[in-house]
Design a protein around this nucleic acid. Structure first.
Length: 287
DNA sequence: CTTCTTGTTACTGA
DNA sequence: ATCAGTAACAAGAA
């Protein structure tokens, strides 16, 4: 499940090989992951030069030199994978055989963009929830405006974090997952952040003391920074822009560990359903 | 076979 | 009007 750290890892991988380059050829399939008319998407992309690659929350935004933007949302199982014409990785010297999926395109490949340096960007998705879309500048700004505070920007202050939780009766977890309040957190990191802050995810946001809110704020920064450093969490299908797994899986303290002992106190971790999602926490450490 | 998995949104009800 | 909870989407794993 690509969340902020995973999409940011991919973004950085793509920046290396794509910014300033021209898209030479575009191959699309007819699946619903390609939003809009295939002809229009092709026309917009073919020959366009990539000006920059940005991200808001889990949305990747590629700015093209004619003013339009190519958006990618990977949802649960989407993958973006850039490899060069020699079949190797874009950097790091890893051979293709070390990649999670070494045969591309495969049956889940829905788009291939060839870049002028010979590299090719593969857009894969097993479940067809992901999408690719071309938007103009106004539409892009409107979409960005729907997102809440972004953890990797200077707007991510304790004051703004506090404002997002203040007076809210819903659960802490629901606030963390709400993209219009805080951008980029998904189910894995929501549980990890709550554990790091020693706060129960099902607590009503309005009952948090200031000290607990501060712990949650600091845990959010810390968990996300460490997850980016480890190039994300590969639990199921996530791979980075080089086709490799992220190593934050080894750092997970609660997600997927229900029934196992808490690494802090040894109490068996509990699993409940909160905000419509599976939620794992330590009943002793988290209050 | 059933159940579970998740990011987002449409829908429902308060 | 606002807010919160939930079903639905898809496809695979267990």
């Amino acid at each position: 499940m690509p969340e902020l750290p995973e999409v940011e890892t991919i973004r950085r991988d793509l920046v290396d090989g794509m910014v300033g380059k021209r898209i030479t050829t575009v191959v699309l399939d007819k699946s619903k992951v390609i939003r809009g008319k295939m002809k229009d998407v092709k026309k917009s992309l073919t020959g366009a030069r990539i000006r920059s690659i940005d991200r808001i929350g889990k949305l990747l935004m590629i700015e093209l030199d004619h003013g339009e933007h190519l958006l990618f949302h990977l949802k649960m199982t989407g993958q973006l994978f850039l490899h060069n014409k020699n079949g190797g990785m874009t950097r790091g010297g890893h051979s293709l055989s070390e990649a999670v999926d070494s045969t591309l395109p495969n049956k889940y490949t829905h788009a291939v963009l060839t870049i002028e340096n010979g590299a090719a960007l593969y857009f894969n998705d097993m479940r067809l929830f992901a999408f690719l879309q071309i938007v103009d500048d106004a539409k892009k700004s409107a979409i960005v405006a729907t997102y809440g505070i972004e953890p990797l920007t200077k707007q991510f202050t304790f004051e703004n974090f506090h404002r997002v939780f203040k007076g809210r009766k819903t659960s802490v977890k629901a606030v963390l997952l709400n993209q219009s309040r805080i951008a980029g957190i998904g189910n894995i990191y929501a549980d990890e952040i709550c554990f790091a802050a020693r706060v129960r995810p099902q607590r009503s946001a309005s009952t948090l003391k200031k000290s607990e809110l501060l712990a949650l704020f600091q845990a959010t920064e810390k968990v996300i920074a460490m997850a980016i450093e480890k190039r994300g969490t590969t639990f199921n299908s996530y791979i980075d822009g080089q086709g490799k797994k992220g190593s934050y899986l080894k750092e997970l303290k609660v997600y997927g560990r229900q029934g196992e002992e808490c690494l802090c106190c040894g109490t068996p971790l509990k699993k409940i359903r909160t905000a419509g999602r599976g939620t794992v926490f330590c009943p002793a450490c988290q209050r």
